[in-house]
């Protein structure tokens, strides 16, 4: 497969990626230095590779690179505002939402997507919104708590820092 140039926007910067058209977007991002997006399964099951793709959360392991042409993407590296953590990151840190940390970037992407969609989620909303992100460490309890705390606490600054409203 010959490579080709794919032009897209990642974390607010326009980028030219040199990739095989059928490469997984996950690999292309990681080879581009964005290693915060993780691979857990390679079959869209675990959610560790979740990113925002044209404003929606997707599994980057299932996106052929060519489809990123012209796309706008946000990865975990683009969630914080410089040194200022996103409210969801802050909550995961404070309330024990991250343990081993490998599912955390994807989980945070899913949580940000959920809160964007449902700023006042019920527990059922949280459970459903995160069902595509497997965590083996926490039993999910502290993840639910982290997400709950974001909306109960300072949920509003989500809008300021979230790149896709």
């Amino acid at each position: 497969m010959p490579k080709q140039i794919i032009t897209c926007t990642i974390n607010g910067q326009s980028q030219r990626l040199d990739a095989h058209p059928m490469s997984r977007l996950l690999d292309v991002l990681r080879e581009h230095g964005l290693t915060g997006t993780k691979e857990g399964c390679g079959e869209g099951e675990c959610g560790a590779c979740s990113i925002f793709f044209n404003g929606r959360v997707v599994n980057s392991c299932l996106v052929p690179a060519l489809q990123a042409e012209g796309a706008t993407m946000t990865t975990i590296e683009g969630i914080a505002n410089g040194e200022q953590l996103h409210a969801v990151q802050e909550a995961f840190l404070k309330y024990g939402g991250a343990q081993c940390g490998i599912c955390t970037p994807g989980m945070i992407m899913a949580a940000v997507a959920l809160l964007k969609e449902k700023p006042n989620p019920t527990e059922a909303d949280i459970r459903e919104g995160l069902a595509g992100n497997l965590c083996r460490c926490t039993g999910y309890m502290k993840i639910f708590e982290s997400v709950m705390r974001v909306f109960k606490g300072k949920g509003t600054d989500l809008e300021e820092t979230c790149p896709h409203k």
Binding site: G44, G47, S50, F53, R56, V57, V58, N59, L62, V63, A110, A113, L114, E128, G129, L130, A131, G132, N133
Partner: peptide, 12 residues
């Protein structure tokens, strides 16, 4: 549709 995969799959 709601039971197909989870959100990230439903989006794609």
């Amino acid at each position: 549709a709601a039971l197909t995969g989870a959100v990230a799959i439903q989006n794609r």
